[in-house]
Design a protein around this nucleic acid. Structure first.
Lengths: 341, 341
DNA sequence: TTGAAAGCGTTACCAC
DNA sequence: GTGGTAACGCTTTCAA
């Protein structure tokens, strides 16, 4: 292993001088500088990030905390984060969160010294105690898809998104509209699903449609749970004519359920999702598009600015939402049961 | 920041003793140990990974080098890698490779000291010089979806996979079968695509079907390129009745092209892919399934074993391949042009 | 402008 | 068993 001492010897200077050259100090003569640079090249010397980190108190590492990192929306956000980190010369450490205890462990670990220079937290809301710990230890944090007044964040108006999707369904003529979302009692504290549900309820109420509790179903995130929930709904005496799922992943499960039950989409059942993940266009899923990649990019940029000391204030970036109408939503047909009753 | 010295003071012992407790040395009395453990708990002390790393010469970090980390197959492999690393207490550093120069930079950087304890390289084949550097610096490396005699790897028999897919098409009755794959001249040196092409050629030859060069087309990996290549093929005077794409991603592009050209799948064009990524089942894509997640898991396990000194030898794990017949392949129809000519 | 030396937080060796 | 100390590779202060 070639160290700074080796370089110093080779160049015939003190190791302090090599360090100065390395760090671009102006207090080095031109000749000395090129001498040292030559030695560095000859020896193919690269400073130890560990030693630098220990001395400087900074690691040049950014950690990304993300629940279920293989979920399509997480991947899209990462896609936005990575290039920004790269161009800033930062190393990306990925912390996948699959259980509540992992969530807690990682949140706690964030305030430990020598860990990372900054953190991007996706879809997870820190508790007040955790936020207090961030403040006390001056830990740089940016939230994505989660909100806290004291922390910078990149967010979207989930209530509004839920409204847009539901209004689309209402305008199509649907009145029996069900909602499928993430379990709101889960220990992760995902907030977006319940906010989307609120938007759903708002629109129903303002459209004079009764909000029926048995039309609102939640389960842990995932395609399988979406499918299961939809199957229950479809087996109801009076099933919904439209289902708004709070994520595309779950909407995909809904479509699976419809297929399995022999219910045609969209003629017998309209399905709307949320996110516009990659697959959505293949299945022609009507959905609320949120700029996932941009959200990652923005978050990374916010963090870079905070790290470079450019911006010290808390910022909240709101993302644009768009309704993408594809082929899984249509006006409802006259209900089979309606004539007979 | 609380250091080992603080703990030592609090416990009223020397800092060497604290270190011994930390590292589970047997040469500590029971009483002293619990005294120290109490102090550690009281102070919520956690050793600095930087200082430990510097001293020990190990970082407890595993780097994963992956081209286009957001590609579905990369994500699936990562899904397998993550839990193994976690359970081993390792931190995951992700290096996304998007350009040849990034590839080279990261490969070179791997042999630098204090970087990571081990590396998982996905879909990238190191050059002989790079392998020599690994050997000289005793760098622990496991390859996934790439092969080198001197490096442990998790691989599949791409030639065989290409054969299986092509044979399926031949058995269906196709004789005009085209191949679409990754650019073999690209600077990444992806080998799998060309191996799959070899399997394709083998089967054609042994089936008495002429291998026509203009039926073999390659371009940089991606859906868009698959689409473009397929469009060219479809516009030929005598277009193929089946296309074997060396990846599902490209096969998806082929299907897009067929749609755009008004060519029906599978009645007018059969399409087979490779990988069985998540989307494949949605579009009913016939494909060669490879256990992507398992490949990540195996690679991580191989690396863990190598790191723990359990296994010092080079190992090559072969993955199982399965043909998944869905709805994008069917016997060819009598060719429109055949009667007229 | 440069060299020497202290110190970052830890481990491991050497005395006791 | 335990405490002190050197050393890991680097940055930065202090003299010169």
């Amino acid at each position: 292993m070639v160290t700074i001492t080796d370089v110093a010897k080779r160049a015939g200077v003190g190791l302090g001088t090599v360090s100065r050259v390395l760090n671009g100090s102006p207090r080095v003569s031109e000749e000395t500088r090129s001498l040292v640079e030559g030695a560095i090249r000859d020896l193919d010397y690269h400073p130890s990030p560990l030693a630098q980190g220990l001395k400087r108190g900074r690691t040049h590492v950014i950690e990304v905390l993300v629940p279920f990192m293989t979920h399509p929306s997480a991947v899209e956000r990462l896609r936005g984060i990575v290039p920004v980190l790269n161009s800033g010369g930062y190393t990306l450490v990925l912390r996948d969160v699959e259980t509540p205890s992992q969530r807690d462990d990682h949140m706690r670990a964030m305030t430990r010294p020598h860990r990372a220079d900054g953190y991007i937290i996706i879809s997870l809301t820190p508790t007040p105690e955790e936020v207090a710990a961030f403040r006390d230890t001056d830990t740089k944090v940016v939230l994505v898809d989660a909100h806290h007044d004291d922390l910078s964040s990149v967010i979207l108006d989930d209530v509004k998104g839920g409204s847009i999707a539901t209004r689309h369904l209402v305008e199509l003529g649907h009145r029996d509209i069900a909602f499928i979302g993430d379990d709101m009692n889960d220990q992760f504290g995902f907030a977006s699903s319940s906010d989307r549900c609120k938007g759903y309820e708002d629109v129903l109420a303002s459209s004079g449609i009764e909000v029926r509790p048995h039309f609102i179903r939640t389960a842990p995130h995932g395609r399988a749970s979406g499918r299961e929930l939809a199957t229950q709904l479809l087996k109801l005496d009076r099933p919904p004519t439209a289902i708004f799922a709070s994520s595309d992943t779950q909407a995909l499960g809904v479509i699976e359920a419809a297929e399995a039950e022999g219910v045609r989409v969209p003629s017998e059942l309209s399905v709307a999702g949320f996110d516009d993940i990659d697959v959505a266009q293949y299945v022609g899923l009507t959905t609320i598009q949120q700029p996932l990649e941009a959200s990652g990019r923005l978050a990374a940029e916010l963090l870079m600015n905070s790290l470079s000391g450019e911006s010290t204030s808390v910022a909240h970036e709101y993302l644009q939402l768009d309704l993408i109408v594809r082929t899984t939503t249509a006006p409802p047909k006259a209900r089979r049961g309606d004539g007979d009753a």
